[in-house]
Amino acid sequence: MTDPLRLEILSLLEDNARLSAEQIAHMLDVSVETVEKIIDEFHSQGIILKYGAMVHWCKVGQQRVNALVDVKVTPQHGYGFDSVARRIYLFPEVQSVYLMSGAYDLSVALEVGSMEEVGRFVEKLASFDFVVSTTTHFVLKKYKEDGVILDEPDKDQRLVISP
């Protein structure tokens, strides 16, 4: 997909999903109908998967426990990495699963309510036949997530009027 209009709509929505079709049409100088049609296509083609808010949970007193688990696995005949990954990512507490190059195979990110829940999950994981080993890292503090710097809101520092 190299149509610049479609790419521009995606980049606007990636940055701010709350923009209405009308606003986007205004910004990009095209009709509202065109924008609506393209966005519908994005939905039906699975290009836009979901809209959500990025929440700073700490600010509402909601402590969440984030952990990264490095998993070494042994894929078996007829049961490759994809199948192994599926067995893992279907757990709702798993936020992301990546196949990695290097010292381990799968990187599994968890978000749960307590350390105990992480323990229970890792125990479950370690009991699978295809899992060789796990190493769990806890997140102590988040500085930046999905391109957004937390705790450091953008502030316009410029003079209000300048020549």
């Binding site: 410029r158 003079l159 209000v160 009027i161 300048s162």
Partner: peptide, 19 residues
């Protein structure tokens, strides 16, 4: 400049430098 400075809520299109 002095006039606009009294309105901190204003959207300024008066800035002559990149945002």
């Amino acid at each position: 400049f002095d006039l606009v400075n009294t309105r901190p809520d204003a959207i300024s299109l008066g800035v002559g430098e990149p945002d």
